[in-house]
Design a protein around this nucleic acid. Structure first.
Lengths: 165, 165
DNA sequence: ACATTTTACTTCATCAGTGAAATATGATTT
DNA sequence: AAATCATATTTCACTGATGAAGTAAAATGT
């Protein structure tokens, strides 16, 4: 369906890298499909992707803490957005916001005990669906997908800083 | 960096399908990275992803026409959004909106000559970057990625209709 | 020591996308 | 002919993301 579309376009514009374009479309489709699935699983917990990611980053920290700036970087979010996310999570008592002692410009964000419990409770119900997604993947498949996605991610990173296409 | 995060989480919650969770994160990251790259390339043309996709669907049609409902389906957009997209593209003279003769509830959307020229002009400058993304991919790599993404897409489709996680 | 620059966040205004409900119009069924 | 269904648009309220400007603290230059 989408294949015919690309096929027809590439007949009109033969210089098009059709195979690669098709892979892009596929990636975009699967990506947004997965995003949708994730948001769907998060909705009952009143979380969205960025909230969840932020919380998980904190959860995965040995000391359970970070700063807005660091969270922005790891969650690839703007500072503005991170302020909003932090506000929301603080209001729900999942994290705390406090001033740093050394550098008083900095804000220290820390996951609370309630936040940890929340993660431990909400995570396991997701597992079956995550497993189901890859149910028919062999170990080699998984390794391969991981390798190819890693490669693609790397290439995309190299690409980004460029100027106008 | 993200790997350590998942690693640490899976130490606390050992039932987690860690390999699969990692693949999900990778997919999401690459997907949004690619999306970003696409939007970046589209920005100079004052198009966003959905505008572009809609226009490309029309372009790839043998007769260059479709209906809002069909476009919603293929571009996976809500009707509200499609109306907005159509308005914008009509205003720019890239498509036309007209009544269908057979079924007068229907609206016929058709790409204009200007629209086709526009696509033919804006597409080629994207090719080098698309090719660069997959520059170090062997043919087998591409086939494999395509196959694995296809499989994943299929599994995600089977998953979706379910109830709350 | 003081002035400037940089860094770290926050606030505010704005915008794109979404979903639900209301409307209009035309087709189909009974 | 009336009720029902289908297609599309409009309006509205809301969420989430973003950019520009503002504030405060620390680092740096002179």
């Amino acid at each position: 369906m989408m294949n015919e579309g690309i096929e027809r376009v590439s007949q009109i514009i033969p210089q098009m890298p059709a195979v690669e374009a098709r892979l892009c479309r596929l990636m975009l489709m699967v990506g947004s499909s997965l995003e949708e699935e994730l948001e769907f699983k998060l909705k009952p917990h009143k979380l969205n992707h960025s909230d969840f990611l932020t919380l998980m980053i904190l959860y995965s920290r040995p000391d359970g803490s970070s700063t807005p700036g660091e969270l922005c970087e790891f969650a690839t979010q703007g500072a503005t957005n991170m302020t909003r996310i932090t506000n929301a999570l603080v209001k729900r008592g999942l994290i705390t916001r406090g001033a740093s002692a050394e550098d008083r410009r900095r804000v220290l964000i820390r996951i609370t005990a309630a936040g940890k419990r929340f993660v431990q409770k909400m995570l396991p119900p997701m597992f079956p669906r995550v497993s189901a997604m890859f149910a028919d993947f062999s170990d080699a498949d998984k390794r391969n997908l991981s390798r190819l996605l890693g490669k693609l991610a790397h290439n995309l990173d190299q690409l980004d800083p460029d100027t106008q296409p």
